[in-house]
Design a binder for these strands. Structure first.
Lengths: 148, 148
DNA sequence: TCCATAGAGATACCATGTATCAATAAGGTA
DNA sequence: TACCTTATTGATACATGGTATCTCTATGGA
């Protein structure tokens, strides 16, 4: 749950102007706790602040991605639609996305992931520089009825 | 390295017609050992078989994805461009992509990955159903000069 | 050889971004 | 407070990647 004033402060410190469209888009973005597409965001903006242009929405989204306030996530890997966005806290971490309700949980299993990367480096002789890991599953409240 | 006749057999068994455009696209696809974009493939096709339509290329690509002969991969996670394709063998596995030359190596570190998934399940109470993991790095031959 | 129909090419369309450009408004300064 | 520089805006056009539709062709079974 990122907080708006802190982000505005950062923008200010980095020389960005604190404009009304930016504040508005930022507020909409952080108010969403689940992944959203650019189209969904644009629809919200059009409804609540119809004078803001589409390009501005994309520009702000891009800015927030570069600042680490928003991450692009990859879902529906097998279909055409691929991008969604998600407001999240800074620093590197991964997402676990509920395939039923969309709830997102972060995780940081760094030790096991590092072990995995080291194993892969040994087996392949690659030098691993980065990775992308996303998990899909059922959150606790969506598991009812299917005990197994 | 998937082999064309075997894939054609599978298509045939599954009731698909073995048409010349399909064969042609399939051959082009499996002849590439590195990730390629739809635009690159379309360019190759236009050059070598200019009567094949763009829609057919996408349709065939989609069919091959559904059959598991081709996978969509996600690179340049932080930029707009996201999709590329890669001909690869069946069954679930992951890719390690050289960020310098594009060389792709598969890996199957299933045990460690399973351990990671189990840890995550314990910590988050999610039930994990699927995952997407891609690694970027330098292949052995692109590591020269940067010892560290 | 014939025939039903899956698949083809052409074309228009859609979705997601990006580039361009003149007009506007932040926010530092006099 | 008024002024000025320039980052940012909205509008518009464009680029890219993929899909829908529609008519015609040609695959492959009878």
């Amino acid at each position: 749950m990122p907080d708006v004033p802190a982000i505005l402060d950062r923008l200010d410190h980095e020389g960005y102007r604190l404009t009304w469209p930016r504040r508005t888009v930022l507020e909409k973005v952080v108010s969403r706790t689940k992944p959203f597409t650019s189209a969904e965001l644009w629809e919200m903006i059009q409804h609540d602040a119809p004078t803001i242009g589409r390009a501005t929405v994309f520009r702000t989204l891009d800015l927030l991605c570069r600042m680490g306030v928003v991450q692009r996530i990859h879902r529906d890997a097998e279909s055409g639609r691929c991008h969604a966005y998600l407001a999240c806290d800074e620093r590197h971490h991964h997402h676990l996305i509920c395939s039923n309700c969309g709830k997102v949980t972060d995780f940081h299993e760094d030790k096991t992931l590092d072990a995995l990367v080291r194993e892969i480096e040994q087996h392949t002789a690659f030098r691993v520089q980065g990775h992308m890991l996303e998990l899909m599953g059922l959150c606790p409240s969506c598991q009812g009825g299917v005990p197994s």
